[in-house]
């Protein structure tokens, strides 16, 4: 069985994001970029399936700028077998929208015929949480999003989902799309020897045009702003005053 894992190159989660002066988005010039943390979890899950003998091959895909090949090399170093880079933008600020990503992924799925796609539930840059679901719709496959546990049994996957208010366990028939939530696993490091070995693993470079997908934006970003700065608090003299202030604010 082949497993396909899409990965996105995003601003590193340790970087304090700054908004560009013209408000058009987050400034990514000379900013440290890394693999989307949820995608790392997806890669880890796929590698574990391979180590368990359930999967034969793990293919990683990234759609974006050329530098996303560094992200793919990381996935290869973690243990993926080969990579496909789809260059769809030449400026890091040009984010490819979920529908375009899903269409490209659909074309790759048609070619590669994986039985399972494991994706991160969302990318931490724009938190769209859409590409996985859109891909399922385009393919007409079942989907199990927000997975915190995944078990494969023959032609079915049993997935525990993190839903509002608790956990839900569902079974989907394969082929299917699973999106990974935070607690699915703890991803391994790309070990130093494997980083060197990953240099020799195959990485195919394609373009969006190769798949006949138009990646021009359909959404318009109206404005991007920094979160409001927290204003100073006030000191109260007594518990009674605290309670009355809270009542004033209508929070109790």
């Amino acid at each position: 069985m082949k497993v396909l894992v899409p990965v996105k190159r995003v601003i590193d989660y340790n970087v304090k994001a700054k908004v560009k002066a013209d408000g058009s988005g987050v400034d990514l010039a000379n900013v440290k970029m890394s693999m989307n943390p949820f995608d790392e979890i997806a890669v880890e899950e796929a590698i574990r399936l391979k180590e368990a003998g359930t999967a034969e091959e793990v293919i990683v895909v990234s759609v974006g700028v050329k530098q996303a090949q560094e992200t793919l090399r990381t996935a290869l170093a973690m243990g993926a077998d080969r990579a496909i880079l789809v260059v769809a933008a030449d400026d890091v600020h040009n984010d490819i929208e979920p529908l375009a990503v899903a269409k490209i992924l659909k074309a790759i799925v048609d070619e590669e015929q994986p039985k399972l796609v494991i994706a991160g539930k969302q990318a931490i840059d724009n938190d769209m949480n859409a590409a996985g679901q859109m891909l399922a719709a385009l393919l007409g496959w079942g989907q199990a999003t927000f997975a915190s546990e995944l078990t494969l049994d023959g032609d079915a996957a049993t997935v525990t989902r993190e839903v509002d208010g608790g956990l839900q366990t569902i079974t989907v028939g394969l082929p299917a799309i699973v999106t990974a939530d935070l607690r699915l696993n703890e991803p391994r490091y790309a070990s130093l020897p494997n980083i060197m070995k990953a240099k020799k693993k195959p990485l195919d470079e394609k373009t969006a045009a190769d798949y006949g997908v138009d990646v021009s934006p359909r959404l318009e970003v109206v404005k991007t702003t920094e979160p409001p700065v927290r204003s100073a608090g006030i000191m109260v003299e007594s518990v009674d005053e605290l309670v009355s202030k809270l009542k004033e604010k209508g929070v109790v």
Binding site: E70, T74, Y189, A190
Partner: peptide
């Protein structure tokens, strides 16, 4: 070189 950056990056992550 790209592989050197990757080695440093992963080491930095472990150190962190």
């Amino acid at each position: 070189p790209e592989h050197a950056s990757a080695l440093i990056e992963t080491t930095r992550k472990m150190v962190r």
